[in-house]
Design a protein around this nucleic acid. Structure first.
Length: 379
RNA sequence: UCCUCAGUAGCUCAAUGGUAGAGCAUUCGGCUGUUAACCGAAGGGUUGUAGGUUCGAGUCCUACCUGAGGAG
């Protein structure tokens, strides 16, 4: 019995875009899906009610490294698992800490056995192995677990990228075996996704994907994107493995992207994405609208009594003016972060719904043309 | 009326007699599996006024102006 199941219900005739249903122990997710990032068991600025009821979010991301350090997986398990702990009834995907190999590069050491992190909170050393990260995520009760991987910086040499990719593949095999043993001990329904790496080298990407397909995983992730490489490269890297990753399994492009890029990833066969941009940029004053980005702190919005996005139905847009949002931002008011995050996530989720609708109505190529033109205009 | 202290960027303040700076504010960027309500850049000065000493004065001297405190 598969840990989670995925059904493709519509396929674009011209591109690799497809619409599907991802069934998890905590509900079904319509794909393509965008997963808001809730690193520390919260999407900064929003409540679970905002996410589930207002925005219609059905799957969230959380982070193994951060929750392991605080409050700790044992504590979370004691409190009934991550879903109960954070009062989130829908699905949760936990990242393994592989991204922290990249983002905390000054605080970790990679060996063949795993990664030793020096806590950014108190300096304590913590060893993460492929097996231990599976166990931590099982303690969380995540619906989708991610294999520990190494997310290399950009650029790296082909030699280092190969060595790093092979290590990630070995870790994926170890994690997978460990996961199977755990399920045999205690039958539970979870999925474990391995992660394709190989920096920006198509040959490494392809051999990585081929090696991971042997695992017969319930889904596959594409990692190592948006680490500083030129924009078009990220899309090429995703294309490189599209024909290798099984089409009857969900594909997850990790850590992407800008609003205009979402349809591009979907066109290349991606079913799931996550990104901190809508939430982080919201707090930092960058708001995404149907007509491009609005940097709300700019003086041009000082007297702008109009809504942030006239086409948006979110609470922020139907209630407040740009001038008021700018005031809240400049005043450093907490409510600004709430309203801005609320809107940006609405925008991302609306884009995903448009994408899905276009695929279902067999009009994805036309949709792509339209959004590409619109995004050229916005720039 | 006298005494003391203080006047430097929009604000709060630095600067042994030797190239006037910082924080905040302002303006503008950036942010991609969150070490991020964060990070960066730029603009902004007759150093209260007028004299003097000095090679050189925000700094020392004199007078005046303004403010705070004290004495009467």
């Amino acid at each position: 019995m598969p840990q989670i199941s995925f059904e493709v219900i519509a396929q674009c005739s011209a591109t690799r875009a497809r619409a599907g249903l991802l069934h998890t122990p905590h509900g079904t997710i319509e794909t393509p899906a965008f997963m808001p990032v809730g690193t520390q068991a919260t999407v900064k600025g929003l409540t679970q009610r905002d996410l589930a009821d207002d925005l219609g979010v059905r799957i969230l991301l959380a982070n193994t490294y951060h929750l392991f350090l605080r409050p700790g997986h044992v504590q979370i398990r004691r409190l009934g698992g991550l879903h109960r702990f954070m009062s989130w009834p829908h699905a949760i995907l936990t990242d393994s800490g592989g991204y922290q190999v990249f983002s905390l590069s000054g605080l970790r050491k990679i060996t063949d056995e795993g990664v030793v992190f020096q806590s950014h909170l108190d300096g304590d050393l913590h060893r993460f192995t492929p097996e231990s990260t599976v166990d931590v995520q099982l303690a969380f009760g995540s619906d989708i677990l991610m294999v520990l991987d190494e997310c290399p910086e950009y650029p790296v040499s082909h030699e280092y990228a190969r060595e790093s990719m092979q290590r990630t593949v070995r870790w994926a095999h170890q994690a997978s075996e460990h996961h199977r043993r755990r399920i045999a001990e205690t039958p539970t329904r979870h999925a474990l996704f391995p992660i394709v790496q190989g920096s920006m080298f198509p040959d490494l990407r392809r051999s990585c994907a081929q090696a991971l397909v042997e695992l017969d995983a319930d889904g596959y992730a594409i990692g190592g994107l948006s680490v500083g490489e030129p924009r078009p490269l990220s899309l090429e890297v995703v294309e490189a493995t599209e024909d290798i990753l099984p089409r009857d399994r969900p594909r997850y492009a990790m850590g992407v992207g800008m609003p205009a890029e979402l349809p591009e990833y979907v066109a290349r066969g991606v079913d799931m994405m996550d990104c901190v941009l809508p939430s982080r940029n919201a707090r930092n004053g960058c708001l995404f609208t149907s007509r491009g980005r609005v940097i709300i702190k700019n003086a041009r919005y000082k007297d702008d009594a109009g809504p942030l996005d006239e086409h948006c139905r979110c609470y922020t847009c139907i209630t407040y003016s740009r001038a008021y949002l700018r005031h809240l931002f400049l005043a450093g008011e907490i409510s600004y972060a709430v309203l801005a995050t609320r809107h940006n996530l609405q925008r991302y989720l609306d884009i995903m719904r448009e994408i899905r609708q276009a695929i279902l109505s067999d009009s994805y190529p036309a949709y792509l043309r339209t959004v590409r033109l619109a995004s050229d205009d916005a720039e």
